[in-house]
Design a protein around this nucleic acid. Structure first.
Length: 424
RNA sequence: GGAGAAAUGGCAGAGUGGACGAAUGCGGUGGUCUUGAAAACCAUUGAGUGUAACAGCUCCGGGGGUUCGAAUCCCUCUUUCUCCGCCA
């Protein structure tokens, strides 16, 4: 959520910057401007009446104390009128405020200057590449066939138990999942992140805090009886740990990591995009989250970028890093880098991580502030997060890229966790 | 699931209709003393909104009500604790 102060003071800039996200802010901005001015008027009026009322009430108290009953009753009459007026004004104010909030949450975050213009995927800009794409033997299989061949992932069984997009990992398939999770968590901890295990369901306030509500409601599984949501990413519960808090400047940055399953409805997905592990309704992910001072947040973003890159290098996977263009950038993000690994049998780049700086957009919704030493006022922090990493597509790439005629070789860094060095 | 009790500032904890944004203690910050630190002492210390700065306004778990006036009374919801029941 953008602050109203910024919106009103930087109208031109806002319009041109949101245009990068292909968002036409003109109309909504006009509405916001007019409603915020009438909000101010009504509020002033209301506060004036409230002040008057407070005065009269005190007066009446005094009059009663000095037994001036007649005067007190006279004053009471006056207060009755005021009371009615206050009631009406606050009703009006609440309506305006509601409408105002409704509008202001519709404005997406402002993209950073580094964000290229563009409509979609094709306009994302590759900033670097690493690793080597392996040459596979002629009988190389896609991961869904490998999964069947070695009996490590059972998609049909998942269909039976739940539905498509909920695979069952078996034997060494289950074990490599655990190995990856442990590897990612240990790496994060080594890099100064504090591990937490958060709830997998969140309430409405949390879903709103990180921006899943109101705009991404359809992507979450909802438990209507209890009004809870299954988390689409650990970002939601982890960032909400700090909802409604005021941190000390010395506490920053706060680095948190968490492994959680993630649940996504993926409404509207179809075809080969959803084949095998490419897109699931339930998947595992290790997430890293940082809360940082505004002046340091872009250095932090780069640090996170390098950290995630180091994971892919250690896993010996071919990867590329993209800067998302305006059209591909999420509602809440100011700058996002995507990581993709090359899955050699599918001959396809698969997104395995997304690392973003949300600046103060989430913090404003979360009321996540900090107090710097030199100022009395609190100010909003910046929040950042990234996947480090999402498991299924990493697994898909490992299976496909590392397949040999004897079996699937396990990357060296995973061997201490996996014990074996091959799946056969 | 049933019965009872409770929810107040960073924390602990007073406050049962008017001078309460709220005693007191701890903690935090600044200072005195000290070579420095500790102790002691002094001062200061909730958030939001608003203002050029004041003022003003809102907030005592959430929502609603009674009253001229509510942290305080009533209703309701949520959460926590204790006891009972069920259960991993």
């Amino acid at each position: 959520m953008l602050s109203i102060k910024y919106i009103l003071e930087n109208e031109e800039e806002l319009i041109s910057k949101l245009a990068v996200k292909n968002f036409d802010a003109n109309e909504i901005l006009d509405k916001i401007k007019s409603i915020s001015s009438s909000k101010k008027d009504v509020k002033q009026n209301l506060e004036y009446c409230q002040a008057e009322m407070n005065l009269i009430s005190k007066e009446i108290g005094m009059l009663y104390k000095t037994k001036q009953i007649v005067e007190a009753n006279e004053a009471k009459k006056k207060s009755t009128e005021l009371k009615e007026e206050i009631k009406n004004l606050s009703k009006e104010f609440n309506n305006i405020d509601k409408e105002f909030n409704n509008l202001i949450v519709q404005l997406p975050n402002i993209p950073n200057d580094l964000v290229p213009k563009g409509k979609g995927e094709k306009d994302n800009i590759e900033i670097r590449k690493g690793g080597t794409i392996p040459k596979l033997h002629k009988k190389a299989l896609a991961h869904w066939d490998l999964a069947k061949k070695y009996d490590i992932i059972d998609f049909e069984l998942g269909n039976k138990i739940t539905g498509s997009g909920f695979p069952v990992y078996k034997g060494k398939g289950a074990k490599i999942q655990r190995s990856l999770i442990s590897f990612f968590l240990d790496q994060a901890i080594e890099n100064g992140y504090n591990e937490v295990i958060p709830p997998l369901m969140v309430n409405e306030a949390s879903a709103f805090g990180t921006g899943q509500l109101p705009d991404k409601e359809g992507q979450m599984y909802t438990m209507t009886t209890d009004n809870l949501f299954l988390i689409p990413t650990a970002e939601v519960p982890v960032t909400n740990i700090y909802r409604d808090t005021i941190l000390k400047a010395d506490d920053l940055p706060i680095k948190t990591t968490a492994y959680t399953p993630c649940f996504r409805r993926e409404a509207g997905s179809y075809g080969k995009d959803v084949r095998g592990l490419n897109r699931l309704h339930q998947f595992d992910k290790v997430e890293i989250v940082q809360i940082q001072k505004p002046e340091n947040s872009y250095d932090t973003l780069n640090e996170m970028l390098e950290y995630i890159e180091s994971l892919l290098i250690k896993l010996e996977l071919p990867y590329r890093i993209l800067t998302l263009c305006g059209g591909d950038l999420s509602f809440t993000s100011a700058l996002t880098y995507d990581f993709e690994v090359y899955s050699a049998a599918q001959k396809k780049w698969l997104e395995v991580s997304s690392v973003s700086n949300f600046e103060s957009f989430q913090a404003n919704r979360l009321k996540l502030r900090y107090r710097s030493k030199d100022s009395k006022k609190t100010q909003l922090t910046h929040t950042l997060n990234g996947s480090a990493l999402a498991l299924p597509r990493i697994l898909a790439a490992i299976l496909e890229n590392n397949q040999t005629e004897k079996g699937i070789k396990i990357p060296k860094v995973l061997q201490p966790y996996f014990i074996y060095d091959i799946i056969n």
